[in-house]
């Protein structure tokens, strides 16, 4: 089971903030493909430049292997302060 979290405008686009995928996809690229197959607009938004991915709360730049209990967060451009 992989936990997917969306932040900022991504959760507005998807209409959800958190989702679990059962069984967990083996790789981040497979997880992206699953989400895009379900919602093409979201798939495109997740692939947009400036959207970063945190796997188990660590930023990852490339494709990565997922475990059965991975937490994958999609992070649009950050804006604090």
């Amino acid at each position: 089971m992989a936990r997917v979290l969306l932040f900022g405008r991504l959760s507005d686009i998807a209409g959800w903030r958190e989702k679990t995928l059962e069984p967990a996809p083996a790789r981040l690229s497979e997880l992206r493909a699953l989400l895009a197959a379900d919602d093409a607009v979201l798939g495109e938004a997740l692939a947009a430049p400036g959207v970063q991915v945190a796997l188990d709360q660590v930023l990852v730049r490339d494709d990565a292997a997922l475990s059965a209990r991975s937490e994958v967060a999609f992070l649009p451009p950050m804006s604090g302060g």
């Binding site: 932040f7 900022g8 405008r9 992070l75 649009p76 451009p77 950050m78 804006s79 604090g80 302060g81």
Partner: peptide
């Protein structure tokens, strides 16, 4: 850094 590198999203 807080403005554009800290994980916050502002609406």
């Amino acid at each position: 850094y807080l403005k554009s590198r800290a994980p916050f999203w502002k609406k």
